[in-house]
Simulated scan of single mutants.
Amino acid sequence: MTAPLDVPESASHAEPEAVAAGAGGTAIQGRSLGQIAWLRLKRDKIAMAGAGVIIFLVLVAICAPIIVKLFGHPPLEFHREMIDQETQIPKDRFGGIGWDFLFGVEPVWGRDIFSRIVYGARVSLLIAFLATLLSVGIGTILGVTAGYFGGWVDTLISRAMDVFLAFPLLVFAIALAGVVPDQAFGLSGDTLRVSLLIFIIGFFNWPYIGRIIRGQTLSLREREFVDAARSLGARGPYIIVRELLPNLMAPILIYATLLIPTNILFEAALSFLGVGVRPPTPTWGGMLADAARIYTVPHFAIFPGLAIFITVLAFNLFGDGLRDALDPRGNR
């Protein structure tokens, strides 16, 4: 028979704080879902690189006047001395690229391509962000309403989604943007064109996110926490705002991030076809449209094309990383 072990009284009556402190003497800290998602996102180097490019582009758009003043020339200023009057192309074989004109000059007019790309970022990002905000807002409200209440409400909103999805959006946008006069609704000039593009792109894109939010709401409304809220007497609006929307933030953020590059391409397509923001206001799509007429000067099309490509790629990479961080089970 072995003798009983001598256990110190302090060990047998350890305080909970001492147990929580662990061997290292430091308390274990809990992490919220947001903190866990941020840790996953930080480990995704490609997504963080995309986020860095997005932040850089936003800063470029905000600080466009300062950047152009330091490194370029006014975007509407002509430099015909750089253009050969016979061929209407830059005299320099490199398209005028140098310290004075970082991306060279445009044929015929001799405007600074670098300055026009910088100012074009303001138009593209402004339209893309506001149009995405409009479509996400409408789609979220109608999607969660249809998914939660069901019945005739769901039927009405779902059929409205089907009607909007049946529209050939590009053809409809060309027709609508083409018939609006230069002055309408108390607006004129670039303000009218930008507002019109935001409305067209944002208002007719809401069914795409609306269907996603409706499907997620149909699943969430059968969960235990929603039944618990109902049993406590909570009404529909309270459950939607306090219970459903917080759990829908992940798909909303993911889809919004992936919708922005689509809207950038859509705005560029409309400007390329001549129904977007009117010249001489610089836009990336408008610069590509001008470059298509003069194919002997490749840099005229390369730089605005690269601007669109890099911007869309950065948003897509960040959107994919954000999806992996917020919904890791969706990749299994």
Score class of each variant (00 low, 15 high):
Gly330Asn: 11
Val312Trp: 10
Pro298Val: 13
Gly189Pro: 12
Val58Tyr: 08
Glu17His: 12
Ile28Glu: 09
Gly285Phe: 07
Glu106Ile: 02
Asp44Pro: 11
Trp109Asp: 06
Ile174Val: 07
Arg230Phe: 00
Pro304Asp: 05
Ile212Trp: 03
Asp44Ala: 04
Leu270Pro: 02
Phe103Leu: 09
Ala292Phe: 08
Gln183His: 15
Ile200Cys: 15
Gly321Asp: 07
Phe172Asn: 15
Phe266Cys: 10
Met1Ser: 12
Val312Tyr: 13
Thr132Val: 12
Thr132Met: 10
Ile97Glu: 15
Ala61Pro: 05
Thr87Asn: 05
Ile97Trp: 00
Ala307Val: 02
Ile28His: 12
Leu142Glu: 00
Asp154Arg: 02
Arg31Glu: 13
Glu222Trp: 07
Leu196His: 11
Gly321Ala: 06
Ile117Trp: 04
Ala146Asp: 01
Gln88Met: 08
Arg80Val: 01
Ala146Cys: 02
Gly104Asn: 01
Glu17Asp: 13
Ala160Met: 13
Gly98Lys: 00
Ser188Thr: 13
Ile200Leu: 09
Val105Met: 02
Asp290Thr: 12
Val297Glu: 03
Gly274Glu: 04
Ile66Leu: 13
Ile264Leu: 12
Gly137Gln: 07
Ala184Arg: 14
Ile198Glu: 08
Gly95Cys: 05
Val226Thr: 02
Leu187Ser: 06
Pro251Lys: 08
Ala146Gly: 03
Tyr295Lys: 15
Ile117His: 04
Leu220Tyr: 00
Leu317Met: 09
Phe129Tyr: 13
Gly22Lys: 05
Ala131Ser: 15
Leu244Trp: 00
Thr155Pro: 01
Gly178Ser: 10
Phe164Tyr: 11
Gly110Thr: 00
Leu176Asn: 10
Ile174Thr: 09
Ile89Leu: 15
Cys63Asp: 14
Glu224Gln: 06
Glu243Phe: 03
